[in-house]
Design a protein around this nucleic acid. Sequence first.
DNA 1: CGTCACTTTGACATTGATCAATTAACGTGG
DNA 2: CCACGTTAATTGATCAATGTCAAAGTGACG
Lengths: 258, 258
Amino acid sequence: MRANSLTQIKPASETGRHGEMRCVECPIRYRAVCAQCESDELSLLEGMKFYRSFEPGQPIVWEGDRMDFVASVVIGVATLTQTLEDGRTQMVGLLLPSDFLGRPGRDHAAYNASATSKVVLCCFRRKPFDELMRTMPHIAHRLLEMTLDELDAAREWMLLLGRKTAREKIASFITIIARREAALRKSRPGGRMEIELPLTRDAMADYLGLTLETVSRQVSALKKDGVITLNGKRGVILHDFARLVGESGDDADGGLLA
Amino acid sequence: MRANSLTQIKPASETGRHGEMRCVECPIRYRAVCAQCESDELSLLEGMKFYRSFEPGQPIVWEGDRMDFVASVVIGVATLTQTLEDGRTQMVGLLLPSDFLGRPGRDHAAYNASATSKVVLCCFRRKPFDELMRTMPHIAHRLLEMTLDELDAAREWMLLLGRKTAREKIASFITIIARREAALRKSRPGGRMEIELPLTRDAMADYLGLTLETVSRQVSALKKDGVITLNGKRGVILHDFARLVGESGDDADGGLLA
DNA sequence: CGTCACTTTGACATTGATCAATTAACGTGG
DNA sequence: CCACGTTAATTGATCAATGTCAAAGTGACG
C-alpha cells in the first residue's frame, strides 16, 4: 500500500482578515452553530467573531498544534486528514460551508486541516466560546445536533471504506456531491445533473481509501459505461441520477443520512 | 467481495426486566450520560428509567424500526452495523458499558443494533428524555462530550478501514481492546497483558472490513511471529504491548483518542 | 461421546496497488 | 489568441494482498 502524496506544506499563517460582515446577512446564518440564536444573541457573537482566509492548498492547523480558536466554514472547502507513521493518509472529514472546525474544551488539534479551495472561516477564540457553550443553550444544542449529524456521516463513510468496491466508492462520492449541490439549490436530486467535483483525483483517493490511479480508472469506467460524461477536470454530467445511485451499492432508501 | 453472514435473526423482544437498582450504586455512574448529574437530578432519573436485557446474538433494534427509547449500556457488549443492498455488512459502532444508544429527537433507528454478549440496558422513553435534554443541561452537556468522543473514535476507525493492512488492522484491534481492559483496571497498558477478545472472528471481520478467513490468518501470523499467544478461542496473551503497537501502523503517540 | 458452532488452513481467483510513461487541461506571457 | 510549461489526469503492464471456495480441525456442551 503506497502512501498518497501529502498536500504540499506551506506556512500556516492566514492570508487575510476581513472587515465587518453582519451576521444577519451571513450566508450560513441558518445552518451553522449560530442557526438557532436570537438577534440579541447574534449581536453578542457579532462582537466576538473574526474572520480568517486561506488559499487553496494551505494548511489551517496541523495535528498536535495548539489551537486557540474554533470556527465555522463560511466559504470554501476544507479537509481533515489523519496520517499513519509511514505517511499514508486518510481524509476523515470534508468541511463545507456551515460546518464546524475544532472542539470546545480541547486546546490541541486532533487532525490536520487544510483548505482545498479559497476558504473563509468565522472564528471565535476558544475560551470565550467555551463560555458561550455554558451561557447560550442554543449554541450547545445546535452543536450537539451538528455533531450527531457528523457522526452519522462518519458511519456512512465507514461502510464505504470497509465494504464498497472501488467503483461503488466513486459512484457514492459523486452521489454525495450531487445531493449536496441539489440541496444548495433547494431542489431534489434526480434526472440529469451537472456538477463540479470539489476535490482533485488525489484528494478523492484520500477520501475514498484508494490510490489516485484507481480513482482515475474507475471514473473512466463510469464514463465508458455511459453513467457520466466528463467536462474538463472537475466537471461531471450525470445523465441519470438514479442510475448512479444504483452503482453505489447502497440500499434504494440509502443516503438519507448523507 | 462476499457478504459476511449476518448474525442470525431472532425475535426482537427483550428477555427480561429488572427490579430496582439505585443510580448511586450503578457501575456506569461516572461515565454515562448521567455522569454529571447531582443527586436531586439522579432521583428524577431514578423514577424514569427502566431496564431491558438481551441474550447474546439477539437484535436490539433493526435499522428503520421505530425506536421509542434511548439507553445506556450497563453491562455487556452491543454492536451497531450497516448493510449494503447485497448483504455486505460493516460494523460502525461497538457499544461498551456506559455507551449511549439512540439519538435524541430521532424516532427511527439508523442502524442495526445487536447484543454480542448478555446485555443490560438502562432505558428512558424518548419523549421524556428529549424533555430532559432541555431541562437538565448536565445531560445535554455530557451527551455532547460523549458524541464528540465517538466522532473521534469513528475517525480513528476510518483511518484503519481506509489505509491499514490486514495485519495492522488486527494489531490495532487487539491494541484497542488491551487499552480498554487496562482502563477498566485503572492501569496503563504495557508489558505483558492477558486479554479476552469480546468478539468472534466473524464480528472482528465486520469491525475491520475484512473476511473472517483473513482475520484468522492474520491472528495466526501474529502468533507465529511471537507477538501474541492464543489461549482458547477468545483469550490472547500479549508478550509486549509496545511490540503490538509497533505492528499497528499508528504513530508512536497515536491512539490518544481511542 | 456426538453435535454444533466457531476456527483454522489450503488452493486459487480477483481486486486494487505499484511502477512507469503518456496525454490532456489550464494558466502565463508573448 | 496562441505557444509553452506546469500540474493534474489517464492509461498500461505487472504484482501483491486479500477475497473466495472448500475442507478439516477444535472446543464447549449436552
